[in-house]
């Protein structure tokens, strides 16, 4: 029991991240509404970010902020943080492009769900 709890405790946030990813992926693929798809995309991306932050975290570590001379501490790994900063910017750009496309599609076809769109595209 102890061992199981141990294993669970050391890995549960990975599991959670994966659940979140799956939720996002499901929305991306299965949802008909285009805005819902993008919400799914956001969840999917943040879940990946969560995964990065999780593995960067070190037991008993502290935030990688410069400490005065003489103080020793275990920093958490700062590199994934930097990576994720970049990835967040990329993610918001993708969302912005996607949303502007949805607005355009709505202006052209008057619908924002996939089934309706398919009908409209075929009709033209």
């Amino acid at each position: 029991m102890e061992a199981v709890l141990e294993a669970f405790l050391s890995h549960y946030n990975y599991g959670m991240a994966i659940i979140l990813m799956m939720i996002g992926l499901y929305a991306l693929i299965a949802k008909q509404n285009l805005v819902k798809k993008l919400i799914g995309l956001n969840i999917f991306q943040t879940a990946i970010f969560l995964f990065y932050i999780s593995f960067a975290d070190v037991e008993g570590g502290i935030a990688p902020i410069y400490l005065p001379e003489g103080m020793e501490a275990i920093y958490v790994n700062p590199l994934p943080h930097v990576l994720i900063l970049t990835a967040i910017v990329v993610g918001v750009s993708v969302t912005a492009v996607g949303l502007s496309l949805i607005v355009r599609i709505y202006e052209e076809y008057g619908v924002i769900d996939e089934a309706g769109l398919l009908k409209m595209v075929k009709r033209r």
């Binding site: 991306q45 996607g98 355009r104 599609i105 769109l117």
Partner: peptide, 24 residues
């Protein structure tokens, strides 16, 4: 062509999934 918006969005969705997989 308005259909290009739809094509671009489809590409965006699948491309982002691909990007997510690569990142992961």
């Amino acid at each position: 062509k308005p259909r290009a918006y739809v094509a671009a969005l489809n590409y965006l969705v699948l491309g982002s999934i691909a990007g997510g997989f690569v990142l992961l």
